[in-house]
Structure formats: structure tokens, C-alpha cells
Amino acid sequence: MGLAKRIIPCLDVDAGRVVKGVQFVDIRDAGDPVEVARRYDEQGADEITFLDITASSDQRETMVHVVEQVAGEVFIPLTVGGGIREVADIRRMLNAGADKVGVNTAAVFNPEFVREAAERFGSQCIVVAIDAKQVSAPEEPLRWEIFTHGGRKPTGIDVIEWAHLMVDYGAGEILLTSMDRDGTRDGFDLVLTRSVSEAVNVPVIASGGVGNLDHLVDGIIEGKADAVLAASIFHFGEYTVGDAKRHMAEHGIEVRL
């Protein structure tokens, strides 16, 4: 017995509403973020992640209000990602009640931002989000690259090297999303997940591709992830977080029940 593996429902929020895109195209409305967060908390979520996908900056304040409301009634760790580009963005989210912030594109364009953020606020609240896509041809050794802009733009940066660098710069955790799997419901990219999780000494959250509860089990056991993140399987009521935890426990995974 000891530390539990975590289940983290992720809420993609656009202009104050929870949405979930299938490979970033077909966006379906899934409700009010405060209500959804409250429901996941009651179901036993270990943390909640909000990903702000609002395009226009004038609607960014909406996310601050969402976080403020949720933090006033949900007493588990809250992470906010999306649109975090400078120290002031981090401070605003922490002051609203977030416990951690996810940094993605800003880290790719300016890695020093991660160092500055970790020194200012502590590594415990800096999650570096990595969007990875396989770039090796079928007969080559596996290799993944960082992609930005929702998986559209390659950067030429190797995922494993980048993960090492980000931990050196002070990342306290890595949120690893397979852009090949995101929205497919085919399961996590387990080889990618295991490669990153074994490469670094900070917790790795597996993300992208969950379509059923066995996928969560695979992410922990085969992917060696410390936590699993999922969105659509929970949003539309197919499974509760409690269902997921019981399923994981039946497969010998330690969870908080």
C-alpha cells in the first residue's frame, strides 16, 4: 500500500463552456464547468484539469471566474492550462484558486519561461504539457516530436530530450498527450508514455485516446504513468470516475476509493 495512482478528468473550456473536440474538429457541448467539476469531485476525481481553449483573449477572464467558483467549493487540486504565456498569467490563475498551471506552447518558444516560473512559484505548481506525435517511419526506431497549435505545427524537438530539459528547468510534473491518439478512443500511446515516464523522475500524466476503462489500466501498468487523464468517457456519462477507480482496483492498481 502507498501512493495511489490518480484519475484526472479534463475539462476543455471554450468561452466558459465545457466542450470536447474529436481531434480538435467536432466540438460538442458538455455543460457548465462549475457543475461538471462539482460532479467529478463527488465521483472521487483525484484532481481536475481545465484546459482553456478560448481563442480570443478578451474571453480569458471567463476562465478566471470559472476557477474562482470551482475553488470555492471543490477541495481537490485544480490545474489550469491553455493561454499561460507569462508570469502574470500564472499569478492570476493561482490567485483565482488554481494549484498548478499547465505550460505548453510558451515553453516551446521560450524554455526559460519554465525556469522563471518554477523559481517564482515552485516546481510543485508547474506542469509542462507536451503534445507529442510519432515522426518515425514504420521501419525506423520509434521517435516522437513536439507539435504545437493543436497538433498542426511540428517543431523538430525530440520528446524525450525535451522532457529531460523541462525537468532540469523545474517542471514538477509532465502532462503527456499523444496527438496521434487524442480524440480517437483507441487508447493511450503506451510506448510513448512508458518512454517518457521511465526517462524522467517527476510524475507523468498520460493523456490522449481513452475510449474505455481498460485503457486507463493499460496506461498505468504498461505505460507506467503516475496518473491518467481523460475527458469524453466521463463527460457524456458513459462511465463515472468511481467506475474507473473500481475497474483499476480490480486490476491491482492502488487508487483512492
Binding site: G2, L3, A4, D46, S123, G172, N201, P203, D226, A227
Partner: peptide, 18 residues
């Protein structure tokens, strides 16, 4: 390492423990 299953334990110790 975990005393039960010898799995590598990461630092920071992050999450829900007993």
C-alpha cells in the same frame, strides 16, 4: 523503491497517500 512491488518511486512525492 516501493517496498511492496519494487516499483521506482518518483520525487516529488505527489498525490494521495495513506
Amino acid at each position: 523503491r516501493d517496498t511492496g512491488n519494487d516499483a521506482r518511486l518518483k520525487i516529488p512525492h505527489m498525490g494521495w497517500n495513506q
